[in-house]
């Protein structure tokens, strides 16, 4: 189907975008190879959609360069459009049309010959389990069904580059994990994927490389493991018995911004830069101060910790993710 080569499919160099006085994207660079998933991770308004829209020819590029399959996005947008598929926040389907009609519409616009188009649409409907609602108008779909069709619509022409802009925002856990499988199988077929997300777990699970974006700037870039390693510190997780214990513990520890308190879970996450000895000291200190500790653990940092350390804020929507 596709020929795998080592050349990057998507290259982005020093991308910049300003809306009025707001610098939406300040300096974003990355490459995506065939079969690779690049995660754009950041809170709402970080510049993820703006970045994707610039590369997918929807927005004018103020400065910097972007190319897809060797074609310059600014000077050859028509060639680029033949190589990309876009889904998520940035592109929708026609609500009045059924799934099959939507796929037929986009297939025709991609100029796929009739016979091949029909075969491809049947294949997609089968593969992505759209059969049960393929003949109903999209306005009747659930959020998960709609999003699935959105993504499938981007795949009609089997593009070598796919942009998924927050494809799982607002999805239930089951639909989310189905979408994750879709992303994995696309990557396995050699498609280069740019995926934006607010969810750390999503980026952690799917992305080969992550760009952490905050207020238009790349604050960190690397593989999920490298990002965690860069933090060079472990986290001591202390679970306490009551709300009162939580307050006492915070008093004892002093109000350090890097310490996260989860009131619901009665848990305190304390960054430990220098290993086990310091943890024992802290635990002893808490116990002597009268805090009733129900459980504790010294763990590797999660992307959540990385994000906090980098941006000084937790992700806006820290929804619990389960599969």
């Amino acid at each position: 189907m596709t020929t795998r080569v080592s050349n990057p499919v998507i290259t982005v160099q020093n991308l910049r975008k300003t809306f009025g006085s707001v610098e939406a994207v300040k300096d974003v660079s990355f490459n995506v190879e065939p079969g690779q998933v690049l995660g754009l991770l950041g809170p709402n308004g970080a510049g993820k959609t703006t970045t994707i829209n610039m590369i997918s020819t929807l927005l004018h590029i103020d400065a910097g360069e972007a190319s897809v399959g060797g074609f310059d996005v600014r000077t050859q947008p028509e060639a680029v459009r033949q190589l990309i598929g876009l889904a998520g926040q940035s592109a929708a389907v026609d609500e009045k049309l059924t799934a099959r009609e939507n796929l037929e519409l986009f297939g025709r616009l991609y100029k796929i010959p009739r016979v091949e188009r029909r075969r491809r649409i049947d294949e997609l409907i089968e593969q992505f389990d759209l059969g049960e609602f393929a003949e109903r108008p999209a306005s009747t779909y659930s959020g998960g069904e709609r999003r699935r069709l959105d993504v499938v619509a981007a795949l009609v022409a089997e593009p070598p580059a796919v942009f998924l802009d927050e494809p799982t925002t607002g999805l239930d856990p089951r639909s989310r994990s189905e979408l994750w499988n879709t992303v994995r199988s696309l990557a396995a077929n050699g498609v280069a994927i740019v995926l934006s997300t607010q969810y750390l777990e999503e980026a952690d699970r799917l992305a080969d490389e992550i760009l952490v974006i905050d207020q238009g700037s790349v604050v960190a870039q690397g593989t999920p493991d490298a990002l965690k390693r860069d933090l060079e510190r472990d986290v001591l997780e202390v679970h306490v018995t009551s709300r009162a214990d939580l307050d006492v513990a915070r008093e004892l520890l002093g109000f350090d911004e890097s310490i996260i308190t989860d009131i619901e879970a009665r848990r305190i996450d304390i960054p430990i830069p220098d290993g086990a000895d310091r943890s024992l000291d802290l635990l002893r200190q808490l116990q002597e101060g009268g805090v009733s500790i129900s459980n504790f653990q010294l763990r590797q940092p999660t992307l959540d910790d990385v994000f906090l350390a980098l941006t000084g804020a937790t992700v806006t929507e820290s929804e619990e993710l389960t599969t």
Partner: peptide, 13 residues
């Protein structure tokens, strides 16, 4: 407003 135009604009049409 429905976002279909953004899809159209990303297509080779």
């Amino acid at each position: 407003t429905e976002g279909v135009n953004d899809r159209f604009r990303s297509l080779p049409m």
